[in-house]
Design a protein around this nucleic acid. Structure first.
Length: 262
DNA sequence: AGAAGTGTTGTTTC
DNA sequence: TGAAACAACACTTC
């Protein structure tokens, strides 16, 4: 599931594959991933333009060119690949940008929950991205304190709210809370300064390691690696993990390591 | 073999 | 305000 670390990986793919390259051809094999733009307009406005340095904000990939900017969101199953022209297409390749050096940039996505947008101006981009909090990688201790202040909901919902902090999804949220020893259903407003400090420290640590790996690691010492086991146990204390639904998503936590505060 | 589960959004409802 | 429920999507698992 693409979260910040995965999208950072796609940003690197985009940088190494396309930066400085010209778009020779635009192939839309499934317009279901195009948002607010027709295949014709995408082809017309993008062909001939050269990619600049790509950016990322939260889970959004920002592909600037010397013309319009392409905005990509990967939903649950999106992927971005750099492949030679002659490599056979994958059934889930929805959009292919043929570049002037013999490579394709391919947006591959099974489920088409999100897709590609085209922004002609900065105002377009702001409208498409909506209300985004600061990127999670750039959030300092003091800033996280400010972001959490005054929040009424549960800490899990707050952490994964893109308008509070951009980039944390379901897996990262659970992983960070588990490492910080904080129960996901705790009210954000009830966290102590010490707990907020742990949250901030674990957020940095988890992000640093995950960004390096290009995804949330699934090793034996990670909650992410255990949470989908048939009978999941806590990598830290060995006790059974709990799984419930919170804010519409499966939430995993360790009742021993993450006291509910009651 | 049909239903539930999967996590990302935005929207709707309470 | 928060949060739950739902839709959208395609595929896997029960």
């Amino acid at each position: 599931m693409p979260e910040l670390p995965d999208v950072e990986g796609y940003r690197r793919v985009l940088a190494s594959c396309a930066e400085g390259r010209r778009v020779e051809r635009v192939e839309v094999s499934d317009a279901g991933v195009l948002r607010g733009v027709t295949p014709q307009r995408l082809r017309r406005e993008l062909t001939g333009h050269r990619f600049g340095a790509p950016e990322r904000h939260g889970k959004w990939l920002i592909a600037r060119t010397d013309g319009p900017t392409v905005l990509l969101h990967f939903g649950m199953t999106g992927d971005l690949l750099c492949r030679p022209h002659d490599e056979p297409p994958h059934p889930h390749d929805r959009v292919t940008l043929a570049l002037d050096d013999g490579h394709d940039l391919r947006y591959r996505d099974q489920r088409k929950l999100q897709g590609l947008w085209l922004a002609a101006t900065e105002a377009d981009m702001d409208r498409i991205l909506g209300d985004q909090g600061p990127d999670a990688l750039s959030v300092s201790r003091a800033e996280l304190d400010r972001l959490l202040a005054g929040r009424r909901g549960r800490v899990k919902a707050t952490l994964t709210d893109q308008s509070v902090v951009a980039g944390l999804g379901n897996l990262l949220g659970d992983e960070i809370l588990w490492r910080a020893g904080i129960h996901p259903a705790r009210p954000t407003a009830g966290l102590s300064a010490e707990e907020r400090a742990r949250l901030e420290r674990e957020m940095r640590g988890v992000l640093r390691t995950s960004v390096r790996a290009g995804h949330v690691p699934t090793g034996p010492s990670w909650l992410t690696g255990r949470r989908d086991d048939p009978d999941p146990h806590c990598p830290r204390c060995g006790g059974p993990l709990r799984r419930t639904r919170m804010a519409g998503r499966t939430t995993a936590w360790c009742p021993r390591c993450q006291p509910d505060g009651s």
